[in-house]
């Protein structure tokens, strides 16, 4: 049994890293950002929010690798703490969207009928509003700050999860063994918990992984627009906006946080794609 298991994971790893160098680089970059988010206080001794106007717009030096921002705060330290905000908010909001999407998609797929129709029409309506516009309005309703932003991001990812779950449930439901269970009078919740949910997990996991990069991008965008993370908390998006003011004299201030966003999102997208190819290649082109 054990050898069969390790063989299977060997195949998984082989397909996962199938695209070679690119995937390894993506994993390395993602790991670097995750580790720097976790160990931010260990890596840098500076306080990310400590204002020190004497050091305002200081150029890079051994003590401040990337210099200081307009309030004299160490840019490198703020990037590290910004990684925390980006990763945490994206993981939370994607998780929230995945759970809510699974539930709603399950209801829509399993019970079809009028409730299902309402859920699916809701998805159509939300998808017809430009996503960024919708997220901004939800952000306004949910309020500023971390909580409101997470709510807004997960709301805008919801339709994708609902549609995927609904499709999975509809296709599994038609299988003979499910019909047989229904005929044999097995309780609904048992069928759902034992058969529908476990069968949907691989695809939902892939969708989750593929949406992480999207969530990071949305967080950065909202914070850039000033309706996400509020000062003095560090976020890559708001750091780009703050740095933009000093573009003429200190272009690095806007450059470095944007580079962090790009690297993380690209890395997470590549990992998501490779996970999909390794877990379920049939989903290629669909997800």
């Amino acid at each position: 049994m054990r050898s069969a298991g390790s063989k299977k994971s060997g195949v998984f790893l082989k397909t996962f890293f199938g695209r070679g160098f690119i995937v390894k680089a993506a994993v390395a970059i993602a790991l670097i950002f995750i580790l720097s988010a976790i160990f931010a206080p260990v890596i840098s001794k500076h306080d990310p929010n400590q204002i020190n106007l004497e050091k305002a717009l200081l150029d890079p030096s051994p003590e401040h690798i990337l210099g200081c921002d307009a309030y004299g705060r160490d840019v490198f330290t703020r990037l590290l703490y910004g990684a925390r905000v980006s990763l945490l908010s994206s993981i939370f909001s994607t998780l929230l969207a995945a759970c809510a999407g699974m539930l709603l998609g399950l209801v829509a797929g399993y019970y079809e009928g009028i409730i299902g129709a309402i859920i699916l029409r809701y998805v159509d309506v939300q998808l017809s509003i430009p996503p960024l516009l919708f997220t901004i309005v939800i952000g306004l309703i949910a309020g500023k700050g971390l909580g409101g932003m997470i709510a807004a991001i997960s709301f805008s990812m919801l339709p994708g999860f609902i549609r995927l779950m609904n499709g999975i449930v509809l296709s599994i439901k038609r299988n003979d063994y499910i019909v047989a269970l229904q005929v044999a009078n097995i309780k609904r919740y048992k069928i759902i918990l034992k058969h529908l949910l476990p069968n949907s997990l691989p695809s939902m996991f892939i969708m989750f992984a593929m949406n992480l990069g999207f969530a990071i991008m949305l967080e950065a965008t909202l914070s850039f627009l000033g309706i996400g993370i509020q000062p003095p908390m560090a976020s890559w998006g708001s750091m780009v906006a703050d740095g933009y003011i000093y573009l003429l004299s200190e272009p690095l201030l806007a450059f470095t946080p944007g580079l962090c966003i790009t690297l993380t999102v690209v890395a997470f997208n590549i990992i998501g794609d490779s996970l999909r190819d390794a877990i379920d290649p049939r989903l290629r082109g669909k997800l």
Partner: peptide, 11 residues
């Protein structure tokens, strides 16, 4: 797909 367009604009 990975680059924020607002950052590209600023650059």
């Amino acid at each position: 797909n990975g680059v924020p367009i607002f950052w590209i604009g600023i650059m």
